[in-house]
Simulated assay, not measured.
Amino acid sequence: MAARVKICGVTTEGAVQAAAEAGAAYLGFNFFPRSPRYAAPPLARDLALEAPPGIAKVGLVVDAEDAVLDGIVETVPLDILQLHGRESPARVREVRARYGLPVMKVIGVAGPGDLAAIDAHAGVADMILVDAKAPKGAVLPGGNGVAFDWRLIAGRRWPVPWMLAGGLNPENVAEAIRLTGARQVDVSSGVESAPGTKDDALIRAFVTAAGEVRDRRPPADVIDPD
């Protein structure tokens, strides 16, 4: 099977259409106000309603309190919540119980010592997103266009589905999939012409490149919106 692709940080109807036409499996809406990819809930709602059936709508938040999450979930028809901050396993459990939505927990990786956090969260999250740890002093927790050493997770498996992120682009995504065995990949800055501005051609190129790596193993368990 071809790797499933998440296009994260969409802010325009054009980006939604480009992702859908390219064959992306997930659309990511960024609710972190400091990000150049921020989408206010009313905008994200309109964009989510424009997405064709079958694409999972993912809401990215960073250490969001319940009041913030309440407003997002009440406004936007999401399929998955993505926790991209320092949320503990206990907080993941709370969010899953409160909103009844699958939770994707992001774990930043820079070295071997970061892998234990994946194991700790894999028992409570519905999906793990393995991302590059943000550089020191970075304003954003993700979307910084940096990668980590993919050899750290080569051949590893966890009890829940997982997704690879961090510095991926149309030129390197195929190699990243081959090296790690990832069946799902996430991209944001790697398909942009400027911070926050998605490029239709880069989206198509990314999805095509990810789709060219075929895995002969049985399909992995994934989270589907239906």
Rank of each mutant, 00 (worst) to 15 (best):
L129N: 08
L83E: 04
P41E: 15
V103Q: 03
A44F: 03
G137N: 09
P33K: 14
I128S: 10
P77Y: 03
L101C: 01
E65C: 05
H121A: 11
Y38L: 12
A67T: 08
P52M: 13
L129P: 11
V109I: 10
V130H: 05
A25I: 07
I128C: 13
N144T: 15
D63E: 12
K133A: 15
G100I: 03
G145M: 11
R98A: 12
P77D: 05
P36Y: 08
D46S: 14
V61Y: 00
A51Y: 00
P33V: 13
G54V: 13
A97M: 08
R96V: 05
E50W: 02
P42K: 12
R37D: 04
A90E: 14
D46E: 15
G54M: 12
V92Y: 00
P53W: 02
A19I: 15
A90S: 15
G54Q: 10
P33H: 11
P53I: 00
Y38V: 13
F31H: 11
A134P: 13
E21W: 10
R98W: 01
E65K: 01
L129R: 11
P52V: 15
A25P: 09
M127V: 04
A48G: 02
F32P: 02
G23Q: 10
V106P: 02
V62D: 00
G28L: 01
G28N: 02
A40H: 14
G54I: 12
G59D: 05
E65W: 00
L78V: 04
